[in-house]
Design a protein around this nucleic acid. Structure first.
Lengths: 213, 213
DNA sequence: TTAGTTCTGGAATGGATCGTCCATAACGTA
DNA sequence: TACGTTATGGACGATCCATTCCAGAACTAA
């Protein structure tokens, strides 16, 4: 009956995300988004509501994606490879930041920094995301402990919080301009300092330590 | 000869900082600052140039203060207390974040997130700040190693980068809404996992570990 | 084909915002 | 005390921006 939409909603959201990502919420004009997406203002407002709603949509999708990436890397696998999965995940996050030569950073961090204080929706979504990431990390740490790759005497909750902090910290220091090589080594170091069970010593955090790809 | 200024420049910068801090760069209007400081636009522009220059001034002062806090806590003391100084510094940063119930976060992180990508001055200043913090941390780690509180086999540069990442990560996860108690424990955990020399074992990262105030 | 519905895109609107301008005030010096 | 210089602060102009509006287009069901 009605006239169908001539645009692909998914693609429009992607373009809108690019805008918000590079220029922030306050720094982005609806005209920018209209131009970037090729849509007229009428379509934009008709389909997504106002600027705030559009941002919330984009931000929410991004948070979902962040958690999905972590799920994809961390869940579902034998305990024997849990530490490898953790290592890969942390290194992936570091590599993302290190290779981000334009210092775009992460929309989660950027949106949270700009809006969480005054926008409960953004604050809530970012908190949820942290909690979800924390749970994923804790599960994997538990698995690695069961297999004896991480000291069982350590509290998995605490180690998970540490790794989450390191992962988010990598984003922050990378955005702040710390050089990529240093960013990459942080991932190595963080994994190297995880407590090892007695009698299963790895080499310490020395100068020449190889990357654990 | 000329008429002297009727306002205290330092105080005006403080008020301006409050504004930029809570509403960000793009989200702050010059009228807000005029109202917050009690100055008219003429005085404001006459004394500080435009909005960008004013922000750069505020941002630069903040970065200086961040480094000064670290210097105050970390430098000047016997090697025997270097680890204590590191511990105190990391715990102070965690406490700052944990007690920041309004989630204002750190202006360094906020300004960097919003502007570093497009404003070379902000990018440069934040990178300088990271480098300065890194150097302070490395020096203290070296001191702790000389005194035998941290394994000398570890690379102080790497451990410093890890601690810097943790400190900045704490700010990020706190801003993102991770609960204060978890934020506080991260500081404990990060310090607990630092490599200890052979034969000087501390208790591991267990569940009941006491805070090292 | 026609009627009813939604989509489209750009013009219009109302308010906000940056930076300038200027008449006046305040101060030090001669 | 008079003058030169700078500070002050509010009005003003030009632009910018989020949102609304509307006239016409596109599509489907009957």
């Amino acid at each position: 009956m009605p006239r169908p939409r001539a645009f692909d909603e998914h693609q429009v959201l992607e373009r809108a995300r690019e805008q918000f990502w590079t220029t922030g919420y306050a720094g982005t004009r609806m005209d920018d988004i209209a131009r970037a997406t090729g849509l007229g203002k009428g379509s934009l407002y008709g389909a997504f509501g106002d600027k705030g709603k559009l941002f919330h949509r984009v931000f929410g999708d991004w948070c979902t994606a962040v958690v999905e990436v972590a799920e994809g890397r961390l869940t579902g696998g034998p305990d024997a490879e849990a530490l490898d999965r953790l290592s890969e995940y942390v290194h992936l996050m570091a590599e993302n930041t290190a290779s981000d030569t334009e210092h775009r950073g992460c929309l989660l961090a950027k949106g949270t920094a700009e809006l969480a204080e005054h926008d409960p929706a953004v604050a809530g979504r970012s908190a949820e995301t942290m909690t979800a990431l924390l749970a994923l990390l804790r599960t994997e740490i538990g698995a690695a402990q069961r297999h004896g790759d991480i000291d069982s005497a350590a509290d998995p909750e605490r180690l998970a919080a540490l790794l989450l902090t390191v992962v988010r910290g990598i984003e922050a220091v990378g955005k702040a301009g710390l050089d990529p090589e240093t960013v990459r080594t942080v991932a190595d170091t963080a994994l190297a300092v995880l407590p090892v069970p007695e009698g299963k010593k790895r080499p310490a955090t020395g100068r020449g330590q190889a990357h654990e790809k």
